[in-house]
Amino acid sequence: MAEIVQITVNGATHRLSLEPDVPLLYLLRNDLGLNGPKFGCGLGQCGACTVLLGAEAVRSCVAPVGAIGDLPVTTLEGIGTAQNPHPLQRAFIAEQAAQCGYCINGMIMQAKALLDHKRDPSDADIRAALADNLCRCGTHHRIIRAVRRAAREMQS
């Protein structure tokens, strides 16, 4: 049965009538019209749907809306915009760290969670943090460079 789900996304609180087992991804994309999180596998394996739940990077394709509770959700749109990009977004542009770009939402959100608790990660830290985020175009090195660049920029 549908329930009233109250959820805070990118700083705004929404009340929606939804089945509590609906994956968060569909609420974000279809009810709120957000494009950042992508459907990749629906299995929590690829990372394309990654969002922040509080400070944690989670896979929105397997996170039921009924289990979100009071924790705020942050999507790619919530960290910066084309006009006012987050340092990670700026760094991904500067490093041209995308080909098709379908995985990039997950890369940036996973990296955001990393940089939020480790300000100066090593390459090995970055690789380990992104190990469960799949990229098929082979843009890995540019992504690593972009995360490194963002870390530098955020420290200075």
Binding site: L34, F39, L76, E77, G80, A98, G101, Y102, I108
Partner: peptide, 20 residues
């Protein structure tokens, strides 16, 4: 710089998946 990358890193509607 590629013209498509800014939208791809900020959640712009650029993929057919994003069409509504």
């Amino acid at each position: 710089q590629r013209i498509d990358i800014p939208a791809k890193v900020t959640g712009g509607a650029i993929y057919v998946q994003d069409m509504r």
